[in-house]
Design a protein around this nucleic acid. Structure first.
Lengths: 253, 253
DNA sequence: TCAATAGTGTCTATCAGACATTATGCT
DNA sequence: AGCATAATGTCTGATAGACACTATTGA
């Protein structure tokens, strides 16, 4: 049995670096021009930075940077996320490694790709400062069409596929929402990430279906009265929040 | 914005190697002693090799090896799998990276972990040759208790968590089954990987539930008669096979 | 006949999905 | 009143889950 692990590593050429790339997703929302009280237009965007140096100078790329030997890949990603957006404690998740030959003209680079989900509110203050510094939020559909540095188009495509799956099978939607939200906000967030999501009786299912009602809970005020919001409509809508509960999905049951 | 990606990589210390580790799962089945025609005892096992050299000489470890610059990490894993088990075209999937400091006394090693699901039949011929060469199949529960090399206990634990989730949400069960199988075989495989899986009306659900009946199809012979097997019972059981269909799971519908 | 597995009948509460209808409250 | 959003009523057929029951056939 020929097992390279039994040999010393020094016989081999070693990688020239272990960078991380982070696909930072956010959902922006803006009021519709026509009316004040109506559901906002939401858009899924990804944060890109403009490269200053070779390679791919002046091209747009994903934020990221090289890992050092004193940190794990995950710690590196968290650090880069903090440096790029100034936020911490945000949902960040590893999803794939990119290592094809020639993906980086600087040498043999094994890149570790993460995605992060950031609430628009966290980025808003940061945004003004970044406008001057070659940082922008781009609608995902546009980003996929741009000529990005390295294999970053591919990485964004893969990340998008991941968060679409996760949006439907986990409660990551909460990353894009305030703590308390209305059903139509939740529905819009899901729709924004997964465009072909259609669920006619959405409210009913969540609220009156035995097996699913554990996901959300009604928000009540100090007196036990249920709390509503009329941000988007005249009639106020019930506010909900996510619980800790994550349903077990199975194709066999 | 301090972005390391804009600097040249050569300013930094580089990793000493990019190994892959592969958690090769298989399900062994053996006849119950008491009776010939009865459901076999199935066990989830993982393939371990005995290390010959420093570090962790004579300790058991996951198979794997160093990637070279001319192959991707995924290609490396496939190659190692082929070298260890002699099989190709098997389900192999990347699931995490391990990079904590000091995980490998040889230096800064960023290890990429895969799991592979191999049908017992593929390994059986190989097994005799390997017995002499420090290769063995160990029940997963035992492997987790053994003092394995590196952080391989952790890697196996993570891999197990992954395949448990995948067993219930995808059709990877087919990797452990022959092309045509009975319901009780399928049920046993699921049970073996996910011990607390209980589904009383299993057969009925798969066969008569609109939304799920696309997963499996009844096997028919050349004359269109449905085909059965009486390997495990006197009364012959209907044979099924997986279709290409994978149901979409969602917590919201 | 028994043992071991395979498969069906039947019942109830719940759910999915469609569609119509009503509620709220600002302009 | 008109409007946009929120929420409920009502119907049909499908499903989940439980449990009892019948079927098959080698030893």
């Amino acid at each position: 049995m020929n097992n390279a692990m039994n040999d010393t590593a020094t016989e081999y050429r070693t990688p020239d670096g272990a960078p991380t790339d982070i696909v930072i997703f956010t959902i922006t929302s803006r009021e519709r021009l026509s009316r004040k009280k109506s559901l906002p237009i939401r858009e899924l965007k990804v944060l890109l930075i403009e490269r200053g140096k070779w390679p791919f100078a002046n091209q747009w790329a994903l934020p990221g940077g090289f890992a050092t030997e004193t940190e794990t890949i995950h710690e590196c990603a968290k650090r880069e996320l903090r440096e790029e957006t100034g936020v911490e404690g945000i949902h960040i998740e590893y999803f794939n490694v990119y290592s094809s030959m020639g993906r980086d003209p600087r040498g043999w680079m094994i890149s570790h790709a993460f995605f992060a989900l950031v609430n628009e509110a966290y980025l808003s203050n940061r945004k003004a400062a970044d406008d001057a510094a070659g940082v922008k939020l781009v609608p995902v559909s546009e980003a996929l069409e741009m000529p990005l540095a390295f294999d970053h188009n591919r990485i964004i495509r893969d990340a998008l596929e991941h968060i679409r799956l996760k949006m439907l099978t986990t409660t990551i939607a909460k990353q894009f929402l305030p703590k308390e939200f209305t059903m139509s906000e939740l529905y819009q967030v899901i729709e924004t990430v997964v465009p072909d999501f259609v669920e006619k009786n959405f409210i009913r299912k969540i609220t009156s279906t035995q097996s699913r009602k554990g996901i959300l809970e009604v928000v009540k005020d100090a007196y036990g009265n249920s709390k509503g919001s009329n941000r988007y409509s005249q009639r106020s809508a019930q506010l909900y929040r996510f619980t800790e509960y994550q349903p077990q999905l199975s194709i066999y049951s």
